[in-house]
Each structure stands twice: as structure tokens, then as C-alpha cells.
Design a binder for these strands. Structure first.
Lengths: 225, 225
DNA sequence: TCCGTAATACTACCATACAAGATGGGGGCT
DNA sequence: AGCCCCCATCTTGTATGGTAGTATTACGGA
């Protein structure tokens, strides 16, 4: 089961980028953290060049901001941009859900049940990191089963940002189990071959996610811009 | 009027990436072309490092493919992926059009009329490159006016691929003028505050674009995978 | 005490050099 | 002849040194 643990992949630059991305989304590197090429390179036992390429990759997805000749910082969370991100993601994923309900790859269908079960176990253990990883795998499998894996690429970066914000809102085991139930509801509509219901279920799913964000912003204003 | 010519921006890596991206989309570098870090560096009078970073950036948007220790090539066009891309873009832009019809920034509204006029002139002159540039500016302005500039970021990479394919289909001045008319139709629905009509107009607009692609694939099989 | 100025200590950026892997061709062996 | 192995020559990947630019800080004057 390496579907969940796959850091040692390819070049040093890719490894470091994956590790930094994970750390940022998991809030191990909170918004505002200053990142130094030197320190990261020393910590990973490589030179500054691969680290630099990793940071450029992260800057492209807006997870960090590179200020020329000044430094690199983890970008702060913007509630406004989160709402825009949710809008875009909703547009894509409701369309995917609708298509999934019209025709779904049977082979991918059985895999999804396993993913949901594993995600539920992670939620019961209150294992935040693995929960989010299985959440991601669910959405990937849904897109692939619907026949548009490219849609996931478009959602991927957006979801990364949202996951980071969700790390503040998703604290209790109950809220995580709610999301699992919503996943099951989506698949129920897909199985029923009901496009409108599937889109509506996805719509409700995504609307829930960031509901608590404004409250969190009031509690941790330093993490927001 | 620098809105259309903005290559000399920032670092050497960014300049080179922008230049290569333009060349790839304009088919100056056809699919399958082998790109050598050495040659590009020599041609631009810089070292390999910035070129390398530029190629990494292009690889991230799937315009080129880097084969470790082997070489870098301009990716070939895939009709299947183009259809998937159109699906995703349609999902986003119809949602944007719907939102635009609900509320639109007046300041952005007047700018759009200018862009459409300029695009029409470019179509009449059969100036393919500038036509596509104004097409891009139109869609950007629409997203901004609708209040979700982030949506454009999600569409940007997808549109780049589609524009490359359109370079083969958009040959006559008439087809370009058709697209301009469709832009006007979209804005007419937006002005009428009719979300469904705006979404439908956008839908028709995007459906047209790749209609001729299969025929082109039969004519130039070497450009496709 | 406060402010303007200059030196200092960082940063990202670029150039150069080196290393590691992959390919293609040629020569020798079977 | 056909196959295999080795080597020359590409490629990308990594390491290191140096440069230009910015923020900070120390310092001298009012």
C-alpha cells in the first residue's frame, strides 16, 4: 500500500518540493514562515539549486511567494481567495459528478468503496493527515472513473489551498465523518444514474467545507492576510 | 499599449519561459520538437540554469515533457485530452458567465467593448497572433469583471493547449469573425442580466472551437500522438 | 532623543564546473 | 550473420562560486 506514502520519487528537487508541499498544507510551516534556500538545503543534505527549483514549483501554485533578492515566505490564507477557489472547484467537480452519473467506469467504482472505508477509519482514529490523503484519492478516483482525469489536474492546486484552510476547521472526528457521509451520498447518486442529484450532492459537499472559515479567521488573524 | 507586448518582464528565466511558451503555442516550435538546454541558452545568451527553470515551468503545464537524462520535447497534441480540456474549461467559464450576468463590474464592462473591437480588427487583418492575444484578454476581463480572477488562472493553462490546437483550425478570417460575434453574444446576455443565456452563449462558443480538430488530425498526423 | 546616512549582512539570481544516467554505434565474440 | 558488450557522446541533474539588489543595523550629527 504505497498509494499513500510516496515521497522518494525522482529527482531531489521533486522530493523536496513534495515534502515542502506536504509540510505547508499540514501547517507544519504556517503562513508567514520565511523559507531560506540555505537552511532547507542543509536540512536535506543537498545544494541550493534543487531547493530553488522546488520553491519555484511551489511559487507557481501560489503556496509560497518569492520576493526577488529578498526572500521566500509561505503565503497567508485569504478568505476571499478561498471563496473564489471554492467557486472554481465547485464548477469543475459538479460537472465531473454529473458526468460520473451519466457513465462510470466499473473498475474504478469498486476502488472507490475501499477508499471511502479507509477514509472512514482514518476519521474515527482522528488521523487528520491520512484522512485528507484519502479525501484526495477519492476525488481523483471520481474524476478518473468519470473519464476526465485532466479535470483533477485543474482541481489539484485549488484543493491544496483549501486543504490548508480545512486544517484549521477540521478538528473534530465528527466533522470528518460528516464529509465521509457526503462522499457516500455522492456515490449513491452516481449509482442511481441521477446526474442532477450527483451534482447537487457535490454542491452541498463543497459548500460545507469552508463554512467555519470566517470564525477561524477571527481566532487566528495572524495566519490570514 | 503594452497590454499585448510584455516579454521583458522580470528574471531571465521568466523571459525565456514566456518566449518559449509563445513559440510553442504559435506552432513556431511544432509538437515533437526536441529542445536542448544548451542551444536555447546559447541562443538567448544566458547560461543553462535559467533555461532549465523555464523548461521546468513549461513541463508543469504539460507543454513540454522532460525525459530525465534523455531530453526535452514539445508534447504532441492529443485530441482526447483536448476534449477533456474543453470539458473542464466549459465547466469553469459557463459558471463565470453565469456569475457575470448576475453582477458585473461596470469599469471592466467598458474595457471589454474596446477589446472586442480590437479583436475584430485583428480578425479582419487576418492577424492570427494578435487575434488570439485579444481573445485571451477578453476572457481575462470577463473573469475579472465577474469578480473571480482566480478562475482565469485555472483556465489559463488549459486555454494555452487549446490555442495551440486552434492554430491549426483557425485559418480563415471568417471563422475568426464568427468567434468575435460569439463574444458579442455573450456580452449581450450579460448586459441583459440573463445568467442562463450567458451560460448558453459561452457553451456554444466553446463547442465551436474544436469542431474541426479531427479533420486536422487526419491532415497532420505527425503533430498528434 | 530623533533622524539621516553609510556600512553590513542577508537574499535570490546567474554562471560555471562536475557528476550520473541514457543512447547509439562500432568492434569482437560466438 | 547475428548477438553482446563496451565506449564515446549526448542528455539532464547537482554542486559551488560569484554578483546584484534589498533590508537591517550601527553610527554620527542635529
Amino acid at each position: 500500500m504505497d498509494a499513500i506514502t510516496s515521497p522518494p520519487t525522482g529527482s531531489a528537487a521533486q522530493r523536496i518540493e513534495a515534502e515542502l508541499r506536504r509540510a505547508i498544507i499540514a501547517m507544519d510551516l504556517p503562513p508567514g514562515t520565511r523559507l531560506s534556500e540555505q537552511e532547507i538545503a542543509a536540512a536535506h543534505g543537498v545544494s541550493r539549486q534543487p531547493v530553488r527549483e522546488a520553491l519555484i514549483g511551489l511559487a507557481r501554485t501560489r503556496l509560497v511567494e518569492i520576493l526577488p533578492q529578498r526572500g521566500t515566505v509561505v503565503v497567508k490564507i485569504s478568505t476571499r481567495k478561498m471563496m473564489e477557489a471554492r467557486f472554481v472547484r465547485e464548477a469543475i467537480e459538479t460537472a465531473v459528478a454529473r458526468r460520473a452519473a451519466e457513465a462510470f467506469d466499473p473498475a474504478a467504482r469498486v476502488k472507490i468503496d475501499d477508499l471511502i472505508d479507509l477514509q472512514q477509519k482514518a476519521a474515527q482514529r482522528n488521523a487528520h493527515g491520512t484522512f485528507q490523503r484519502y479525501d484526495e484519492l477519492f476525488h481523483i478516483a471520481l474524476a478518473e472513473g468519470a473519464g476526465c482525469p485532466l479535470a483533477w489536474e485543474a482541481v489539484s492546486d485549488i484543493k491544496a489551498h483549501m486543504d490548508r484552510a480545512c486544517h484549521l476547521t477540521l478538528t473534530s472526528s465528527e466533522t470528518m465523518l460528516d464529509l465521509v457521509a457526503q462522499h457516500r451520498a455522492i456515490m449513491a447518486a452516481v449509482d442511481a444514474r441521477d446526474p442532477d442529484a450527483a451534482a447537487e450532492a457535490m454542491h452541498r459537499h463543497l459548500r460545507e467545507i469552508l463554512r467555519a472559515l470566517p470564525k477561524v479567521e477571527a481566532e487566528h488573524p495572524d495566519l490570514f492576510e
